[in-house]
Design a protein around this nucleic acid. Structure first.
Lengths: 203, 203
DNA sequence: GTCTATAATTAGATAGAC
DNA sequence: GTCTATCTAATTATAGAC
């Protein structure tokens, strides 16, 4: 086996894994962990069910790969849009919130998965928190405590208020369209919501 | 068959249906529509699976009965706590929000079911909106438009911000406990959150 | 690395005993 | 009205051909 063919095979491996993970993210967010079937995921990825257990040992491990992926996307999104050198700390905070809202508009999966898992204390939930959520929560905690502008006891309330206010409308976009007539996925609706939530939390 | 025995049978019928609906609400909120099994629901209700299809034709119809139940509970809760004769309209609005938050603390199922259904445009979602959500949304709409204190174009944003901010922390209570150390189900946490969200939306 | 075939469970819905 | 037994279909995970 030549080096070239090895590379090609590795590339194909990664491409296939990537397709499956993307399809899994979509399916898990849409139907929940139990509701999504590996057959449906395979179909969405344009492959077969057997290949999923080849690349990922189990449905559980595939779910973890999907979560890893969405948090990696969140990380790069927030890094790319970080406002360095913003003078007004309140405006810097607002812009951080706006960017978080924009991310939720582009990736409603994150919130859906969070709600799907956060309600029961199983092993997936503890893994999700310990691996991905705690580091982010503590970063926010440190930032706000350094500012000294919020009572630390209120931080959990502010955190879940921000996440809920900034994500729900996109997570239930089909419902929002039918209920209110507003399509939250349009550019103007996203910007309006980002500004609304940013001003809500940092008046 | 005597009138007395008929009454007893009807009572038992209603009791059984009620037990099943309560168990279904619990299971659907915990695991989602697809994730919850009728066998599990029967077990929670202390009965068997066959009885579910006897009282409710299908899993779908059982789900509708569960939704009817939680919205009925919301209705009586908001009626019972309605603040008649509050002079300051802003304070009346705040108190309405506080009561909504308190309801979510006591019944996190409503939000979980909303998120579970709102993401896909299937028949259950349209039924949920048309039957239960639109009347409530329009009532809020009329109330706020009469006040004339909010731009009607912002109403959907304010609505979903309020629902998200006021519900999420209770809907993912196990997660909140592990992530932040705060137990959102304690009386003091509920009151803190109610006040936080009320002041957020009506400063 | 990819696919088909299949084993072992579990699902919702039905039939029939009591 | 309640329960057990069962049918059909779908699920995850595995085995083995290519």
């Amino acid at each position: 086996m030549t080096a070239a063919s090895t590379t090609t095979r590795d590339q194909q491996r990664e491409e296939t894994r990537e397709r499956i993970v993307a399809a899994a993210l979509e399916a898990f967010a849409e139907k929940g962990f139990r509701g999504a079937s590996t057959r449906d995921i395979a179909r969405r990825a344009g492959t077969n069910q057997g290949l999923i257990t080849y690349h990922f040992r189990s449905k559980d491990e595939l779910w973890r790969a999907a979560i890893d992926r969405v948090f990696a996307t969140l990380g790069t999104h927030l890094l790319d849009t970080a406002t360095a050198g913003q003078e007004d700390p309140r405006e810097a905070l607002r812009e951080g919130i706006r960017q978080y809202v924009r991310f939720n508009a582009a990736h409603p999966e994150l919130f859906r998965l969070m709600v799907d898992e956060g309600k029961s204390s199983d092993e997936r939930m503890t893994w999700l928190i310990d691996t991905h959520m705690r580091p982010r929560f503590e970063a926010i905690e440190r930032r706000l405590e350094a500012d000294g502008r919020i009572d630390p006891a209120l931080l959990p309330h502010a955190f879940y208020a921000m996440v809920g206010a900034g994500s729900l409308i996109f997570a239930v976009a089909p419902e929002c369209r039918r209920l209110t007539g507003l399509d939250p996925e349009t550019r103007s609706a996203i910007e309006t919501h980002a500004e609304f939530v940013a001003r809500l939390l940092v008046p």
